[in-house]
Design a protein around this nucleic acid. Structure first.
Lengths: 323, 323
DNA sequence: ATTTTTATGTCAACCCGTTGACATATGAAA
DNA sequence: TTTCATATGTCAACGGGTTGACATAAAAAT
């Protein structure tokens, strides 16, 4: 069986308390004893049982991460950065792919609570979260409003939407269509649409919006894009609120030999390797991760943290050839 | 503070043991009592502390997942499927992005052991794993040989390499180059190269190999691709052992107005949305996840599991326009 | 020579939930 | 009436590590 402190103590010829003192750097320990203990630990391949420690300390150093799916490169990259930063700070990540399904989100939330996570990073609309936050759980949201008290980190969505739309207008586009996710929720990302609407109004153009469910399945885009081309054959500019939509449209347009200006949103490394010609609004993914973790850890570790309820990070226009 | 069993018991007017009996469906409980207890749990927002349960039961239902990075869409999708299947089976996933760095792998491994994971899925070359497996930890590898006793799940890499190379030959390519990761390790994925070599020999062509470090950073590809085009301007066919390499090459070739046939490997959903024209060998990612978990859970749950040491799943040629 | 500091041991309580042993009390079946 | 299945309670030990209290002893400082 797995060795425990007692075994280490026996082998090192000391008391369990002394081993614990070595492990936690508490009280007085001579170098000689420390070495003996460490050697015994090596010999036995001993590693402290973090479950037992968590139980006593009431700190798991576990962070729950709930997002739609790591299969989407934006979340894949975000997840990478979040986990990476967490690891460097001694936190561990419990991953949850909710696919934006409320029932799954609730199950995941309960799972995380049962596992005594110290905090949760949410990149999906998690209704339930609200209650639990009141119960003292640290929560931070990425691009989602969960409640008035939960800090939100996001890219400057309005500026992104504005930059994208302005670029298309500047490109002399006469019929600019917005392709967006389904618009039931009031998220910060919705500001991309808001900016588009505002700009269109300013330039006396009619906004045209197509919505695609973000189910992250190939070909789910196709029928809606077909509608777009049928109903608006004159389309000559598209702002898609994420790069997958943008790429799907771009490829459909190519098939149809349509000359359309396209701007996407996200600007992942993956996109820039696979489809560098796509002009897009790049989110500072690593910075988003850093900001979210910074806030979450403040919530976890500080008594009366002074939290920024809204953190907006600058976007960057990546010029490809599509606009 | 968080409610515990005792609080539930008090509110429900029963003993802690009875609450535990309700939670674990043990012994006799009347419907009336069960309801009372359940209601008390709801009222208090009580969730059992899985840390305490784990400590007692010696089962955490935690699975460690170690892979290079979820920022790579192949691993992003694999991660999604693994986590998803695990969740449906009552397992939770602790995520580790090792970036293929041995020191990180070792730290992650120790972390997972401390956290009493029931098993580990490894998609990276984790030298240390070997030892721990001997100590009775369930381990399964994806596309890596870790030791003689650790089951490996992979796509049929040889068939994939063969199919890709054959296609290029069939396309009348005269100078077929292989772009591969750096070849220090003997991995199943290396069979893609083996197949290429074999085919080239069979057709009396000279194999030409360029190696790119899989650091997953854009532009790390560029200098090596430059070399390729300078040293072999006659190249007219390329088999890249992953789609990111393939896409990078494809885009560089377009820049140079070179007409080259290209075949990639992986065939993620992301690729097929972003760059559907790329011809590629599609790995059955979901099936890989299923097979790996199936084996791992057998290791965890069965006394004397009869494990397939090598599981090869069929690949599929996805015909785009690049070959 | 005396006080302090350093070093280690013993012991018990605690973290939260689980489980087995045992007692007790119904109501139902034999 | 006796027996048995059902229902619940009490109690203690356990899982592995942590921590505070207290005791003891040697080495260092005064």
């Amino acid at each position: 069986m797995k060795p425990k402190i007692e075994d280490v103590a026996k082998l090192a010829g000391v008391s369990p308390t002394t081993v614990s003192r070595v492990l936690n750097n508490r009280g007085y320990i001579s170098d000689k004893t420390r070495d003996k203990v460490q050697q015994a630990m090596n010999e036995l391949n001993y590693f402290p049982n973090d479950v037992a420690r968590t139980l006593f300390n009431k700190r798991s150093n576990l962070i729950g991460l709930i997002l739609p799916t790591t299969a989407n490169p934006f979340f894949g990259e975000l997840t990478f950065h979040i986990e990476n930063i967490c690891a460097s700070l001694g936190y561990k990540v419990l991953l949850c792919n909710s696919l934006n399904q409320v029932d799954k989100e609730e199950k995941y939330l309960e799972m995380l609570l049962r596992n005594q996570v110290d905090g949760i990073i949410v990149g999906t609309h998690n209704r339930g979260i609200l209650d639990y936050h009141k119960q003292g759980l640290a929560v931070v949201a990425i691009d989602r409003y969960l409640s008035e008290t939960i800090p939100v980190v996001s890219s400057d969505n309005y500026d992104g939407g504005k930059t994208a739309t302005e670029l298309l207008i500047h490109n002399q586009c006469q019929c600019i269509v917005l392709i967006d996710g389904i618009g039931e929720l009031e998220t910060p990302a919705r500001l991309r649409r808001k900016a588009y609407m505002d700009l269109m109004e300013q330039h006396r153009q009619t906004p045209i919006i197509y919505e695609i469910a973000e189910v992250f399945e190939q070909n789910s885009y196709i029928p809606i894009l077909n509608d777009l081309f049928t109903e608006h054959p004159e389309v000559d500019g598209v702002f898609a609120t994420n790069d997958l939509f943008a790429a799907a449209l771009w490829n459909e347009a190519k098939k149809r030999n349509k000359s359309i200006k396209v701007v996407g949103y996200d600007g992942t490394e993956t996109l820039r390797t696979l489809l560098p010609e796509l002009t897009t609004i790049k989110q500072p993914i690593k910075s988003l991760a850093e900001a979210a973790i910074d806030i979450l850890i403040k919530e976890i570790e500080e008594e009366l943290p002074d939290l920024p309820l809204e953190t907006k990070l600058p976007i960057k226009l990546i010029k490809g050839t599509t606009a």
